[in-house]
């Protein structure tokens, strides 16, 4: 699957590229408006990831506006250092599929990217399958061996995050941030994450799922066990 990344910060772009290439995407990277427009007009992309602030004339929002007219089938994710709600709303109003404020987690970008493409290509009616675990993201439902598993919202969010970032090391901070947003800096938020992971594990193994979660000592967790 081909992606276009429009980002003027070279180091950031290589980090994003490095992470997404491992996910199996083909990524083309440009650094300004003019290059982006040329590429976008010539080729087809599953998703375009654009920074709002770009050097020279033309912002990520201008690119978005143009793409929405010429290639409405491409998914579009905006990233911005501004993080203001206005930017976010402006982007979403212009037809962006998602918006991420810098700094963001690569795992978060990857999860959003997958969700956006899933929504685009399969109109959302998809099942994420990991061995015996089936996740229905839009219905917030989980099945294991045809048995429904009742997960709380946090447990479901964790499982979905783990499955979309399978094989990746996710830090405790990252997971705490997923569940509690900006308040993840609290000392008790790690206990909170831990207790949710424990409950999620318990519920999944109770219906016969294999425990795929590996804890990485001192760092966090990784989902996906090579058996």
């Amino acid at each position: 699957m081909k992606l276009l990344l429009i980002e003027d910060e070279h180091d950031l772009a290589t980090a994003i590229q490095g992470y997404l290439v491992q996910e199996g995407y083909l990524i083309e990277h440009v650094t300004d408006y003019a290059q982006a427009m040329t590429k976008a007009d010539l080729y087809e992309y599953a998703c375009i990831i654009a920074d709002i602030t770009l050097p020279g004339k033309g912002t990520g929002l201008d690119i978005l506006q143009h793409i929405k007219q010429s290639k409405p089938e491409a998914a579009f994710i905006l990233i911005s250092a501004k993080g203001a709600l206005d930017d976010r709303l402006a982007g979403l109003n212009l037809g962006a599929d998602d918006y991420l404020a810098k700094p963001f987690h690569l795992a978060e970008l990857s999860a959003r990217l997958k969700a956006v493409i899933r929504r685009r290509l399969f109109s959302g009616n998809t099942v994420l399958t990991y061995h015996e675990i089936q996740i229905f993201p839009d219905e917030k439902r989980v099945m294991v061996h045809e048995t429904a598993v009742q997960l709380t919202r946090s447990e479901f969010d964790l499982l979905l995050y783990f499955v979309t970032n399978k094989g990746r090391v996710l830090t405790k901070e990252q997971l705490a941030e997923l569940l509690t947003g900006d308040d993840a800096d609290q000392a008790d938020s790690h206990d909170f994450v831990y207790s949710h992971i424990k409950n999620m594990r318990k519920k999944l193994t109770a219906v016969g799922a294999i425990d795929y979660l590996v804890s990485v000592y001192g760092i966090g967790y990784k989902f996906g066990r090579t058996i």
Binding site: A15, Y19, Q22, A81, K102, P103, L106, Q174
Partner: peptide, 20 residues
């Protein structure tokens, strides 16, 4: 604060990449 966002994003994301 605004200028710090990009370098911060780079540090954070490079670290995430290294963790893998």
């Amino acid at each position: 604060a605004h200028e710090l966002q990009n370098p911060l994003a780079i540090i954070q994301n490079k670290a995430e990449l290294l963790l893998q």
